[in-house]
């Protein structure tokens, strides 16, 4: 077996894992992929922290303090950082909460809605502390590539990765960018 030199890490922040599911949609091409790369931290390997990598792919926006730690760790360790999907690029679905005041949100969930924690807002340090608003990841770290879609199709992800791994500037065809 040849030595796999390229290391790839992925993570999901404030996302729905839909982009990761779409990643799995490259189906049998996964076998080709693992010939080329070694996975670092991803939900597939269950590695908890990202080590030095060539490529990092981030799904989801930034909605809490923990997201920032993960994202900064990715940025520090990955030579190329990719935002995948509408959530990472723009905030996406989770950012629908940006029009709702955080106080109102907490009150609605923990105080008006019966049966949760006896009507108190939980304050366990284990729980990631949420931001006022959900932010796209480019507002927190420098992002090298944006792979659009909600989620991008498996074909789009495959095209993007194969371009990148071959040292080409990634380019998506029109068909891979639209859904009509």
């Amino acid at each position: 077996m040849t030595e796999r030199q390229i290391r790839l890490a992925t993570c999901s922040l404030a996302g729905c894992f839909g982009c990761h599911m779409s990643f799995l949609d490259i189906d049998e091409r996964l076998f080709d992929l693992v010939e080329l790369i070694e996975f670092d931290r991803t939900p597939l390997t269950d590695i908890k922290h990202c080590g030095p990598c060539d490529v990092g792919i981030v799904e989801g926006g930034v909605c809490n303090a923990e997201n920032v730690h993960v994202l900064k760790e990715f940025r520090k360790n990955c030579k190329v950082l990719v935002a995948i999907g509408a959530c990472a690029i723009n905030g996406g679905l989770p950012s629908l909460r940006n029009n709702i005041d955080l106080w109102d949100c907490f009150q609605e969930v923990y105080q008006y809605e019966g049966g949760l924690e006896g009507g108190v807002v939980p304050n366990d340090p284990e729980l990631p502390l949420p931001f006022d608003k959900v932010h796209p990841i480019y507002e927190v770290v420098k992002v090298d590539y944006f792979l659009p879609g909600c989620p991008p199709s498996g074909d789009a992800i495959w095209r993007f990765l194969t371009d990148l791994l071959a040292g080409r500037e990634p380019k998506l065809e029109y068909e891979q960018l639209h859904f009509d």
Binding site: E66, F106, V121, P122, P125, L129, F131
Partner: peptide
């Protein structure tokens, strides 16, 4: 941007 949540939860720990 964490200040509001700190106020609501009353947290001031390292992770907050």
């Amino acid at each position: 941007a964490l200040e509001t949540a700190r106020k609501i939860t009353g947290r001031d720990d390292e992770w907050a």
